[in-house]
Computed example of a mutant assay.
Amino acid sequence: MKPLCIAEMGHFFVGGRRARVAGRPVAEIQLVPGSPPYRADMNGEYLVASLYVEHARPEPVTRPCPLLFWHGGGLTGACWDTTPDGREGWKLWFLRRGWHVHVSDAVERGRSGYAPFPEIFPGAPLHRRVNDPWEQFRIGPSHAEGRAHPGHQFPLDHYEDFLRQCVPRFVGTDADMLAAYLALVERVGPCVIIAHSQGGHFACAAAQAAPDLVRALVLLEPSGFGAGAMPDIPVLLLYGDHIARDPRWVTLRAAGGAFAARTPRAALHDLPAEGLAGNGHMLMLERNSDAIAARVQGWLESNL
């Protein structure tokens, strides 16, 4: 593989707000065996709901604007770095093609940090069981029996490597998440957003709130579409296979079709109908992820 020349790489944080906690009991705990007691007073002021962003700029940059990657629920930006079977992820794939890429961990995920709950974040986080992605992301009908859908593209031998990157997901934090994503868009300037699942909802909401700063959206099986009308920007929606096997995904796919029908510059691509069969929900991690990335790149070249 040809060496990649990177002119700049680093990370930064954006967004956040101050919040106060009061009324919690004070306790003395031992943080390290043999250490003196620590007075754990959780009352006071906090800085919460910031967003972690890492970026890399190639030399040369050949694309017209930065590219932002937003992940889905219960995940972090790690899903754009490397596939479960060890191949380069979409971050490097697009970096090699001249994009200045930005990968973020959403509010309350990964390196973006957490906040006390229920005082600041309104409820306890949700956690994924071992079988959840297998069955909910359309890898197969039964994890317990090891049954995958015929022709599935997920690297099944590395399923547990995917499980290791799943993180807690809070509920009731949408306003904080959108505020931080908007702070990122405002800092980076005009950009393209590639968003997966829950991230698609926030990408649409950001485009609706700041249409002058979002040049295009690429939505991988989005779970929502914001709350307003989509501005006049190009939107690509991608859906994988086996959707008819799961009533929840039938509903989500129908919502995507309705969104595309009412959005003038939206294009909905059904991957199995276009010769890319066997994909589940994690399009950017599966064995044919490079072929899907190439479809995205071609669409961006035609629409920017």
Rank of each mutant, 00 (worst) to 15 (best):
C191L: 11
G189I: 04
Y181E: 06
D157L: 13
P116H: 02
A144S: 14
P190N: 01
F117E: 12
E145K: 14
G140L: 14
A180S: 11
A175G: 00
V167A: 00
C204H: 02
H149L: 09
A209H: 07
G189P: 10
V188C: 14
P168T: 01
A148D: 09
F202L: 15
Q208D: 10
L213S: 06
E186I: 00
D176N: 07
F121W: 07
V185Q: 02
R147M: 12
P122T: 07
G146P: 13
Q136H: 12
P150K: 07
A144P: 03
E160K: 05
L220W: 04
D174V: 06
T173M: 07
Q165D: 04
C191W: 04
D174R: 10
Q198K: 10
H152T: 15
L220H: 00
H143P: 01
P122F: 02
P150M: 08
P118A: 08
G189W: 07
E119N: 03
Y181S: 05
L213Q: 13
P125E: 12
V214E: 03
Q165V: 10
P122Y: 05
A195R: 03
C191V: 08
A148I: 09
V171Y: 02
P150W: 12
P168H: 01
R147H: 12
E160Q: 15
S197C: 11
M177D: 04
I193P: 03
D212H: 13
E145P: 01
S142H: 11
S142W: 07
L184M: 14
A210S: 10
A148S: 15
P150H: 09
Q165I: 14
F154K: 10
E221P: 00
R147W: 06
I120D: 09
D176W: 11
D161M: 07
H152E: 03
G189N: 07
L182H: 04
C204V: 05
I139E: 06
I120N: 07
S223W: 05
G199M: 06
V188I: 15
R164Q: 10
V188L: 15
R129T: 14
R215Q: 15
A205D: 07
G200W: 02
F121L: 04
V130C: 11
A206F: 08
Y181V: 11
P155F: 05
A207F: 04
R164V: 01
G199Q: 03
Q153M: 15
E186W: 06
C191R: 01
L126P: 01
H127L: 15
A124P: 12
Q208M: 11
D212T: 04
A183E: 12
E221C: 10
Q165F: 01
A216N: 05
Y181C: 10
R164K: 15
F117H: 14
V214I: 15
F202P: 06
L178Y: 00
R138V: 07
A209E: 13
C191G: 05
P133M: 14
H149A: 03
Y159F: 15
I194H: 08
